[in-house]
Design a binder for these strands. Structure first.
Lengths: 165, 165
DNA sequence: CTTGGAATGTCAACAAAGCTGACGTATTGT
DNA sequence: ACAATACGTCAGCTTTGTTGACATTCCAAG
């Protein structure tokens, strides 16, 4: 693994630079989740509920299986979260129209209200960071993040962009 | 909070753009932790052990309290992790020299070996992403991440950079 | 030299959120 | 008719976080 390609354009690939990038991801992710977490802590919900709510809002009518793949958890784990959300009247689970084995998931009015509250908080931080960093930095930010994803996740990510456009 | 400043340089601040940034963070963080997670799954360790090992390697001799602040967990939670690492001979806890209440934490040879294995895996992905994205994108990536951090975390982050230089 | 407070460690109990494995039911497609 | 799929659920386990209580050790101020 000895990196002796050492051109000047590759100077930013020293282990020290990479390590700083790793730490930046760690600390930034903490900030990224901090605001929604604070809101969720006041109710009986956690980060798992937020993720489910986010992606149902993003792709209304999505199936359980699709959500499973996006979130990368087991159906048992997701089911526990989904059940409480349905019970609490934030999510509605409708039998599929074409395939009645499937369940199409939607947010109720209350669900949308919570989603808005959570994502407003998260977007506010994002907006501040974007504004501070400037458009070019934001483009670079997105480029690097996409390159870091697993190929499968990049596909899911792009599918959301196309569907949500 | 209505955003009617609408200049063309602010087009990237639409809710849709922000939402995509949020999702990019989510999917990228999954990739970011995937490789070390795979290694750790083969032993009796988890992500919490990785974090402790990383920051002890980064700042040898750090105190428990300092580590607590960096990781943002309770001492009980950290202690459980730290205890197993000490028991397994990966971390050494030495009584402080100036203040003997403190414990200075160091990695043993075995600890350093594991740290190298984990961070090699994580850096490999980082390196690939950086290389693919290019130096300018990397600079933007870092800028946005720093802007996303809580001020306290940014201080910790910068302290590590100065100390580790 | 005593004592208050700080730093650390530890016990117990608990919660959130992940996991595996097994099983049941409804529905669909072959 | 039958196999496969989508979903839900029960039971049990693990990791990693939390509170609260309490002991120990030690520095520093009085």
């Amino acid at each position: 693994m000895s990196e002796s390609t050492g051109g000047e354009t590759l100077l930013f690939l020293t282990d020290e630079q990479l390590r700083q990038g790793i730490e930046a991801m760690f600390f930034a992710y903490r900030g990224f989740t901090a605001d929604p977490d604070r809101i969720l802590a006041t109710m009986a919900y956690g980060r798992a509920h937020h993720r489910a709510i986010h992606f149902i809002a993003r792709a209304p009518g999505t199936t359980v299986n699709n959500l499973l793949e996006i979130l990368g958890v087991t159906k048992q784990s997701l089911n526990r979260v989904l059940r409480t959300l349905v019970e609490d009247g934030l999510v509605e689970s409708k039998v599929g129209t074409t395939d009645r084995r499937e369940r199409n998931l939607f947010l109720t009015e209350d669900g949308m209200a919570l989603e808005r509250r959570l994502s407003d908080a998260q977007r506010a931080r994002m907006r501040a960071a974007y504004r501070q960093a400037g458009p070019e930095a934001v483009a670079g930010f997105r480029t690097v993040l996409e390159a870091m994803m697993d190929p499968e996740m990049r596909r899911k990510y792009n599918a959301l962009r196309e569907g949500g456009a």
